[in-house]
Design a protein around this nucleic acid. Structure first.
Lengths: 228, 228, 228, 228
DNA sequence: GATGAATGAGCGTTCATTCAT
DNA sequence: GATGAATGAACGCTCATTCAT
């Protein structure tokens, strides 16, 4: 029957740090999306036995969601900004120096799930996509675009819209993140993110640089499907 | 008694065809996502005064959602399949012949919104991402991959994972769709999809073909930002 | 999908007589009860393609229900009244003359289902139980009670509350009706209604008459389980 | 946004124990039946101000209904089983020993209302009539039938279908329960259940036993209408 | 007479949120 | 700090009923 409720509960052995709660929320939101995630799910995941306890740490479900999106993004913003802040490097150096850490981040962090959430809730949480564009995507594109403009001015890069080139340079990363979050669970083959991106950078440079691109540094070999 | 139900007037201003309902549902879902869309929103958008009326055409909200995703995709599946079914064409011909119609579709159809929905609801509606992969993305990637393998065998394309190349080839399209749906409303600059994609195809070919690519046919000039 | 609605419909070959509708309603109500029966069920059962058509014949679902209960009962009321209106007959003659036709009616008519409906909806349709008591159960009990009182006055029947005896006399019939409607579908063994009732009448008479009861007329042998 | 939900005051005047809720549900269901009972009715009856609160104790309306039917029956099943488990007693002792407690139960418990519910919802909740037959009616009939068969073997009871006799023995009880639930509220005279049943047992024994039945024990006098 | 599109009231159920303990 | 009982606002869905054709 469905009446059995009572019995006394043993105290939890260790306290719930806010960080655990945060991680739980991130995992739930990334998996199910905002609306389909219930406060009870998050509570249960950290071992809290009542939904009410969650409100010790967050004012509302929406605040929780925003915090998850923003704070998950934050450390990577710093990392990428630090790496791309040397705006004088050549396009090849820049891309090779930016793409690999991005690939690592993409593989090891929850950024993919967060990007998915940003896309999904762009209408309901416009602030989030604004932040993502302003803090993350915009700056990256700007640095690349600037490098391309410089290279075009020096005759190293073919004519063409530099913004379009920059977007093209970034596109495989974004596509791979979505691929992994959306289509791999649906049966699509998984890719070795770092390998695909490395190959992509080289091909991109080959298609954009007028002279022969400098030989790729050691460690940038061609790649294959993950699992090869 | 509890069965007494009164009713007012089944008057209507105009006949509501199923297609209108369908379009309304697509628009609402694309804008707000599945959970945040209320049946009442859809009803109101087509001029129906009661939520119940919607159920003459759809069995449930979920069925409605699935129908929107699948049927919006369907005609384009046919179109693309027809165009890419000549598998003997060279890589350059294939890409130029596939990317432009895809760009047109992307610009003029609701595919962008639907892709967003597929990404957002991948967890809650796994069947939809499965269908999208099986019917749309998978076949496109296969055709491109096959063309690359063929070209590699004939020494026309550089070594490298052909699947990765194929993914790279379509990445700008996917990225642009998401860009438009997610970041443009957040203040990001809008791009001229067809121009960016055309430039992307040429750059991709330039980076991948070993010999000089055949000159791009007339009409494929470099592009700029939309609105320039 | 769930959109397919249209196509043109061939006309029905024969018109729907109200009687057919009535029978359909009776069957549905008896099976599912008032609330669980939908107008659409009734319409479909008679071959009407729209719920609205039902309203040509009935003002409301409640009116339909009441009509079913009352009109199903009506002919049997007449029959029983005719048979029990000769109040001068002895108790044995009366019971043997009333129980057998009641058994036949119980077996062959929808009275069992209607009794079930009356019981189920006694609170929501008090008028129906009132009618059933006033028109059917009350008169039958009265006749039997009167016969018992007469027999007691002549020393043929033992002392005791005649109303209680009368109730006891018809209890097997009521119980069997409920048994068939409620417990036989649940796996309980089915009984041969006429045989059980005949045996019951004899046992009842045996327990109530002071002298030996007149031998049962031919055709009233002991009975067994149906199917024996 | 569609997730904004405000709330007022979770103040309550007294603690609502599950048992109170259960009783309230039983009362509502018995009075109105399953469909006509609204969750709000039950909530209000126990002093809960919101329908949602009911769902802390029951998973669904159907579960609530089933629980009411099953758990109301349960204690009486035990009681009756205990009393009829001495299968060696004579038919007279058995009936006199079983019928009186059954009468008391019938008068003082909610079994009448529950039987009504079982009958009314036999189609929609077939499991309930199955349980009632298996746990309650079936065992009782079996014990009585067995006693009759034994008595017939010893020449104490007249020939005849023992199952039919058993049903006849039980019939007044079932009929009285239905009578009270269905027809008394419709104006039918109320009976003194214990008295009618006691008289019925004696008459039944008189009609079934071949020799003179043992004199009824003290306290089993003839009865009259309740209220006399 | 029948059809079917439309209506709208109502109900079961969910769940974010509150608060006394 | 945590608990859990309670709240109340939605929202999906059903279905009796109406009415123009």
């Amino acid at each position: 029957m469905n009446e059995v409720r009572a019995v006394r509960r043993p105290r939890r052995t260790k306290p719930h740090r806010p960080n655990e709660l945060f991680a739980a929320a991130a995992a739930e939101f990334a998996a199910k999306g905002f609306a389909a995630t219930r406060i009870a799910d998050v509570a249960q995941r950290v071992g809290l036995r009542s939904r009410g306890s969650v409100y010790r740490h967050f004012d509302s479900k929406e605040a929780m969601f925003q915090a998850v999106v923003v704070k998950t993004m934050a450390p990577h913003v710093e990392a990428l900004r630090a790496r791309s802040i040397a705006p004088t490097s050549s396009l090849a150096v820049l891309l090779r120096g930016v793409v690999r850490p991005m690939a690592e981040i993409a593989v090891n962090s929850a950024l993919g799930g967060v990007l998915k959430m940003v896309i999904a809730e762009a209408h309901n949480f416009p602030e989030l996509s604004r932040i993502w564009y302003r803090e993350l995507l915009g700056p990256i594109l700007e640095v690349i675009t600037a490098a391309i403009i410089r290279a075009q001015a020096e005759g190293e890069v073919r004519q063409g819209d530099p913004h379009a080139f920059a977007l093209q340079a970034i596109a495989p990363l974004i596509t791979l993140l979505i691929w992994r979050e959306t289509f791999v669970p649906a049966g699509a083959p998984e890719h070795d993110v770092e390998a695909v991106l490395a190959q992509g950078v080289e091909a991109f440079l080959g298609g954009v640089l007028i002279s022969q691109p400098a030989a790729a540094p050691a460690g940038w070999e061609p790649c294959g499907l993950a699992g090869d």
